[in-house]
């Protein structure tokens, strides 16, 4: 709930919805529905009522897409980045570069990133074990 009103396509759709509810209410509903969808994708091995098997790729895709939608809903509306001055969005996006570098540099590119760290940046394991 920000100090600034937000405008855009989503907001104009919300204005036309019945019940005279605000964007926060509909954002909450969307988050709930998408979470249900996310849990359902993992819980069911086949599409309910059919024999169609939900493949691992489909589950993966659903988890990623739902994560993006939920992340956007929380950041844009609940954290009101959409209505606030741009500087807050820029601040929020600032660490993204470092996060991507970390995910790539440690997470994906270097197989020895954890097990083969040089001694000067590893804890004193003997000391830790003896405690």
């Amino acid at each position: 709930m920000g100090e600034h009103e937000t405008t855009g396509i989503i907001e104009s759709i919300v204005e036309r919805l019945p019940g005279n509810k605000d964007i926060y209410f509909w954002n909450f509903i969307v988050l709930m529905v998408f979470t249900l969808f996310e849990v359902g994708a993992v819980f069911f091995e086949t599409v309910p009522g059919t024999e169609i098997r939900i493949s691992r790729f489909a589950v993966w895709t659903i988890l990623v897409v739902v994560g993006i939608v939920k992340g956007y809903g929380i950041a844009a509306y609940f954290m009101h980045l959409k209505g606030d001055p741009r500087i807050y969005t820029r601040t929020a996006l600032f660490p993204v570069l470092f996060v991507l570098l970390m995910l790539w540099g440690i997470g994906l590119s270097n197989p020895e990133a954890i097990t083969e760290l040089p001694s000067w940046c590893t804890p004193d394991w003997d000391y830790a074990t003896s405690r």
């Binding site: 601040t91 929020a92 600032f94 660490p95 996060v99 970390m102 995910l103 997470g107 994906l108 270097n110």
Partner: peptide
């Protein structure tokens, strides 16, 4: 503004967990 900067430092904290998880998970 201070709170947003704090939140961004928290993003980095959780990114370290995810990069480690990604490393071992792969």
């Amino acid at each position: 503004a201070g709170l947003w900067v704090f939140i961004m430092s928290e993003v980095m904290v959780f990114a370290t967990f995810f990069s480690s998880y990604l490393r071992v998970r792969t």
